[in-house]
Design a protein around this nucleic acid. Structure first.
Lengths: 234, 234
DNA sequence: TCCAAAAAATGATATATACCAATATACTGA
DNA sequence: TCAGTATATTGGTATATATCATTTTTTGGA
């Protein structure tokens, strides 16, 4: 049987290493120079093999840093109804978790007043959270809720299953409005999400309403561009 | 202004030769060895330039024979047609326009085969366009359609009201699947859209199906992050 | 201990050369 | 004139080396 070109053999070898778990998602693989020695080929031949893996989306290269095993993006189905982050992650076989950065009562900003139909004298609960899938940071979220809606609940109830407790107390969750846009990661966001300043961010702003038309939550979320995408069926 | 890599400059030069009519569809272009002398570069550098043109579907290589201009000439400006993008812009009081970068028949890429349920031997029509609102570039779009679906129509019909002519010939347009993600602008995209390399891009990929479940269009669009957002109601 | 600069490591670009496999062309003899 | 063979041309694969740009790590001084 005729041998494949060396660069294709190396392509397959690297792929097997990834599939077998020798390298995992996010891992940096050995440098081109190292691997060319390991495989006993020229660096150009090794580069050609890696390029085909990059073209397939299996690897990604970062100038000056190295070559990494690509992550498969977390996906949110946008055509489904209002879904919590936790449900979304579990539906994709990932373990959701979150870390609360801040949780406090405050006066609403202009945009919060606008989105939640509030006045200056009203108070809001503002929660800042980092959300993870399988311990990898996926997004940073600021959720704002009119304070009067959370008065009857403690922090634990609000942070873990607020929609649920709302429904249990007789409220009916209605529709939501969203905008999706892109931006670059700020210094602060990059620290929270374990990325670099200037990386691509997918930003979601959503206002959710009760069935009676009253807005009850305004959420601003920044997703890591490399790790997240929205999926929509029309 | 910083010079591009030599292989990209040569890429552009060869593209201009084709667009200007120096070489036409089906013509064999000078050999790699000849062109490396002409451009005064190494054959490997010349090969890299040609590879990017092959990847774009503009050239095709045949071992032992040469490198040929792919079917159907890259063409120039077209007047904009009525599209959903146009309706969207007008609804917001903006003047829509577009510029066709390329329009040609090619063999499908792996992702195009996957999305459109095609085989290697099938052909596709691939259109690249920049779209503007009030003369400001908003997005760069690549639409791919199975060639057999456009055989009966001319370029004007396809670019201006393809959905309409499809419907008039008895097809029923069904559903669509979209993914929305974010990324950073590449060198090429930043030139097209008048932004800087590394700026935030909102990327949309959509596969549209006929009512019988057959995919008939696969579109990839990159929107300038600063100038575009999606709005959805759930 | 911290910060800035230097050094090292990384992928990217480029050159030069050689050989291989497929195809096209030229040449020679019947 | 045609068929077979030899030669030339073509793209493909591969090696070796150098330099550049970007990022990370190390080092040394404050």
């Amino acid at each position: 049987m005729m041998a494949s070109p060396i660069y294709i053999q190396i392509h397959n070898e690297i792929k097997r290493s990834i599939e077998s778990g020798k390298w995992n998602v996010g891992d940096r693989i050995p440098s081109e120079r190292e691997m060319s020695v390991t495989f006993g080929v020229s660096r150009m031949t090794l580069r050609q093999a890696i390029k085909t893996l990059v073209d397939e989306g299996i690897l990604e290269r970062r100038v000056g840093s190295g070559t990494f095993v690509s992550r498969q993006k977390v996906q949110e189905k946008m055509s489904s109804g209002v879904t919590s982050f936790s449900e979304l992650m579990r539906a994709q076989g990932k373990e959701p978790s979150s870390k609360t950065i801040s949780y406090h009562i405050a006066t609403p900003s202009l945009s919060e007043m606008e989105k939640l139909s509030l006045e200056e004298k009203d108070l809001v609960l503002r929660m800042e959270r980092i959300r993870y899938a399988d311990k990898i940071p996926i997004c940073f979220e600021i959720a704002t809720i009119p304070e009067k809606l959370v008065q009857s609940y403690n922090k634990e109830e609000v942070t873990s299953s607020f929609y649920h407790v709302l429904e249990e107390s007789g409220h009916i969750i209605g529709h939501a409005q969203q905008t999706v846009s892109s931006m670059l990661a700020s210094e602060q966001i990059s620290e929270y999400l374990g990325i670099r300043r200037g990386d691509a961010i997918l930003r979601l702003r959503q206002t959710t309403y009760l069935n009676d038309g009253q807005p009850f939550e305004y959420v601003r979320t920044q997703y890591v561009g490399d790790r997240f995408e929205f999926y929509l069926e029309k």
